[in-house]
Write a protein that binds this DNA or RNA. Sequence first.
DNA 1: TGCCAGGCCCTCTTTAGGGCCTT
Length: 207
Amino acid sequence: MLADSIAVLDFETTGLSPTQQARATEIGVVIVEGGQIVARYQSLMNSGAWVPPFIEQLTGISNAMLRTAPPAAQVMAEVADFVGERPLLAHNASFDQKFWDAELALIRRKRVQPFACSLLLARRLLPMAPSHKLGNLNRWAGLPDTGKAHRALADAEMAANLVSFMAALLRERHGIAEVSHQLLCTLQRVPTAKLSQALHKLREQSC
DNA sequence: TGCCAGGCCCTCTTTAGGGCCTT
């Protein structure tokens, strides 16, 4: 289990990047403490952006659903307070970090904590998995079905279960006694060719 | 109403190209 309390988040959006005018349509966040999900937040968010048909088909989130959703600014203020200063984690964090930072900037707030990435960690710790897509990794690892894929809370719960799975692997297979968010951030930047050395060093440091 | 990013990582590499991953 992870040594600290972390927030695992997932955005559904209208596209791939806020630099291309894409906006968030839904956010899901789970708080993980002691290897357990102890709190959840999920909300659709209405930014006024148009959802393309491809995205509507992928996520099931329609323009009609967003018309009655709370304003994006209200949701972002609520979810930023919900997360607080907990360190963050997402699957392919570079994607969610861009939207988190961009949506916060629109309400004149700034991220105060680092992001860890379960995709970078899975590529290092689970190189034998045939695919590192979030849903495929969860099925491959035999983790619980969390609901409809490509909805924010279900995907956040999948990422949370995946990071707990990898934390257990670090403890049981690699002998690292205390797996913290900071350790995950260190590990995700280790070049894959130097992974064995890095794991050995981390094991020595944790004893 | 609609075009299409960017970081990581491997290899047939490093003065590059292409697949993977996120919506």
